[in-house]
Design a protein around this nucleic acid. Structure first.
Lengths: 221, 221
DNA sequence: AGGTAATAACTGACCGGACGGTCATTTGCA
DNA sequence: TGCAAATGACCGTCCGGTCAGTTATTACCT
């Protein structure tokens, strides 16, 4: 009798099947506010307009919620960076500038800004998160950037530097800026001003902190 | 009669009154290994050769242990940095080099290396730790470094940069290097090689990543 | 249309075990 | 004997995860 019904795929749904995303949104807000450990699954459920049990209909564990959350936020960013890295051929400084400015733009969304904090806090106690982040982000981005720097040196755009270590000099300042703001509330007057940070950093990164030896050649504004 | 002994301070003790420090040592080892939340007070006690109750003879709470731990490790470092910052007058690049190399040397002790990770992990859920760290470190070091940079600019050693934002460019790479190693095990072959990182970073920080416009002036080895 | 059966979606009381902190009791030293 | 030092059983609480039961939605039948 019901054989006909069977093949009709998903038949109905009390509310949309956007549920998993709603749960992730709620969890993100609470994780940002109180951290992973201090957030109860029931709080997530309440905020998403569900009961605790329903959360476990969509995610096998609290940790799985965190992992899904992080993946949803960062994978698109990594993809975007990789895209830029691949697309351009010439002066690597241009690519570095593009990527850093892209990052700055993305980080102006508080949902994204909170990611470094979350990841830092939880990777130690949650190996699966660490593995996911390595696989999805680090292990894809690092080789690309190393290659970029290496090519930049070969083609005479950059000085002889250690490509691997130089990655730290490129993105470290961004991380520190976010960390200071997120963990201690230390930031420039009136906001993060990530664009200004990137400007200042790029000028140092490319041209150095030292004043030109004698003559005032050209001061970038 | 025993008055002579008495004024020697603590009269007796089933074992020495080095106890608090022993507890801190044990706690540090475990916090490094498993993190703060995952470490039970009883584990700390066992490792220090005490019972759980005895820990509460010396510290009012588990959190107090962490705070004491962090303070013991970082305050001497901050003091040392401040000292250097105060002592030298001329080229700020020399001071920056000294401080960064001092930091690199200190961080080669795993007990110190673990501090950034611990602090990052726990500040969110432990406001007192955040306040302590701000008071003891950040609020003392930042003004000193800003002053150094400002003077460096005024005296013609450095280009016009934003002193406050430039701090991120100076120490951010160090932090990222430590974070990558501690959180993901990503580091150069055979160790952190913090000295190499600092060398590479300082050359970029001072002279920039760009190759000299035309002539090969002087390449540092 | 109205009734009914089938079932997806959801609920919330409950369980189990972990763990920070307490305190009555014991131990060791003078 | 007196008392500081140290113990460890115990308590209260918290919370992730489960599951038997309930509700909402649809398909089908008359």
């Amino acid at each position: 009798m019901n054989e006909i019904e069977k093949d009709r795929g998903p038949k109905f749904r009390r509310r949309a099947e956007a549920r998993p995303d709603e749960v992730l949104d709620a969890a993100l807000a609470l994780f940002i506010e109180k951290g992973f450990a201090a957030t109860r699954v029931e709080d997530i459920a309440k905020r998403a307009g569900l009961s605790k049990g329903a959360v476990y209909l969509y995610f096998p564990s609290k940790e799985a919620v965190l992992e899904a959350l992080v993946r949803r936020a960062i994978v698109p960013i990594a993809d975007s960076a990789l895209q830029t890295l691949h697309d351009y051929e010439g002066d690597p400084r241009i690519v570095i500038g593009l990527v850093l400015n892209m990052l700055a733009a993305r980080l102006s969304d508080p949902r994204i800004l909170a990611m470094p904090k979350l990841i830092f806090r939880e990777v130690l106690g949650f190996p699966e998160l660490a593995q996911m982040y390595r696989r999805e982000v680090i292990d894809r981005v690092i080789p690309a950037v190393e290659g970029l720097i290496r090519r930049g040196i070969d083609q005479g755009y950059l000085r002889q530097v250690d490509p691997s270590l130089t990655i730290r000099s490129i993105i470290g300042p961004l991380l520190l800026h976010v960390a200071m703001a997120e963990l201690f509330g230390i930031m420039p007057e009136g906001g993060l001003h990530l664009d200004k940070l990137v400007d200042n950093h790029l000028s140092i990164l490319f041209d150095g902190l030292s004043a030109p030896p004698s003559a005032k050649t050209w001061s970038a504004s």
